[in-house]
């Protein structure tokens, strides 16, 4: 469904975002070497006589750098201003698509033109509601098209606002690099303000967010195997009977590497907790409480406190273990969480 703003934004499709921009420097061996050093790229094609530039450097040749961009077209500034005024003040980059028609070589002087290719309808994403803006840059050397660079950003109104005093964080004022056309205030998109574990979320698709997976290794595999079978296993040193959690290869009390396990009965209390507000993360909807739970057996475990409003969690609150299954495209994930023991929540 089109909205009125979208109609105004759509009018910018096909209009220029940068006209007759030129690279700050000709393609050159020192910048190629710096790039290869940074990325660890030892491809011999990028060194010596006859060297070419790494094709993926395409955008680097048209970056404004510290001295800023030249050739930005008014239409692009207007488009961004319209979005700003509509509250879509944050920016995240989502896509970079490049095509290389011929290699660039030291001495090549690049020129570029950028067009606003498309503006999406309003999309609601994990980050917030906004519009995808796609630009396409043609890179030329002496009139010959040598590459194309398509760049997509989401310009959006953040879903959650930073506490006052940090308003600047909501106004994603920077981010990442951008070629001539890109706004100077690109956000860390890919990145910022909200790390997205699943890029599709940033694209507004509505599948279940992918929940982070535990790192399972030889030292803790038994714990996660227990969780899978809905048993919360605590290690017990067979040398001195000291319980330990999380799982470790040896006993902190006596140093013995020998151990067996004890199944926790699932009762505990909130020893401490924090409330997570920011940054948001896919699969989690802030604010939410993370508790350090002291089990009846005496060891402590970090987990979510569920079935209680985040602001009702209290130190000393009696809780009990529950195993929850989270299904997403990566399959089933079972996690131990804690809920208040019946009748224990203050209204």
């Amino acid at each position: 469904m089109d909205d009125e703003l979208h109609a105004r934004l759509k009018a910018y499709e096909g209009r220029p975002a940068a006209v007759a921009g030129t690279g700050r420097d000709p393609v050159n061996a020192p910048m190629i070497r710096h790039w290869c050093e940074a990325t660890g790229d030892r491809n011999p094609a990028y060194t010596g006589p006859g060297a070419i530039a790494p094709p993926t450097m395409l955008q680097a040749w048209i970056m404004g750098g510290l001295s800023g961009h030249e050739g930005r077209a008014q239409a692009y500034d207007e488009l961004l201003s319209l979005l700003d005024e509509a509250g879509c003040t944050s920016v995240v980059a989502t896509d970079c698509e490049q095509e290389y028609l011929r290699p660039l070589r030291p001495g090549d002087e690049v020129a570029f033109d950028t067009v606003i290719e498309s503006v999406s309808q309003r999309k609601t994403t994990k980050l917030g509601t906004g519009y995808f803006v796609t630009t396409r840059t043609d890179v030329r050397v002496a009139e010959e098209l040598v590459g194309t660079h398509r760049f997509r950003i989401l310009k959006y109104a953040p879903r959650t606002h930073a506490p006052s005093g940090q308003a600047s964080s909501a106004r994603a004022s920077s981010g990442h690099a951008s070629s001539g056309p890109a706004p100077n205030e690109y956000v860390p998109s890919e990145h910022a303000p909200t790390p997205t574990g699943r890029e599709e979320k940033a694209q507004g698709r509505q599948e279940a967010p992918r929940r982070p997976r535990p790192v399972v290794n030889r030292d803790n595999a038994g714990f996660w195997e227990g969780v899978r079978r809905h048993r919360l296993l605590v290690q017990r040193c067979t040398g001195c009977d000291t319980l330990r959690f999380p799982w470790l290869p040896g006993c902190n009390a006596c140093g013995s590497p020998e151990w067996d396990t004890v199944e926790a009965d699932g009762e505990g209390t909130v020893f401490s907790y924090v409330v997570m507000h920011h940054p948001p993360f896919p699969a989690f909807s802030p604010p939410y409480a993370i508790g350090l739970i002291e089990l009846a057996e005496g060891v402590r475990i970090i987990s979510n406190v569920v079935d209680v409003p985040y602001d009702k969690v209290r130190i000393g609150m009696p809780v009990e273990l529950e195993f929850r299954s989270y299904d997403d495209e990566d399959g089933e994930l079972v996690l131990p969480v804690f809920r208040p023991r019946a009748g224990e929540v203050a209204a």
Binding site: A45, T56, H176, A192, P279
Partner: peptide, 26 residues
Amino acid sequence: ARRKGSPDIFMNILTTNGLVGRYLTD
């Protein structure tokens, strides 16, 4: 970076692009 809501600095898209290219040509 923290003031903008990110827990730390993070890699830019151009570097990622370069690493992907390197992975293939390696």
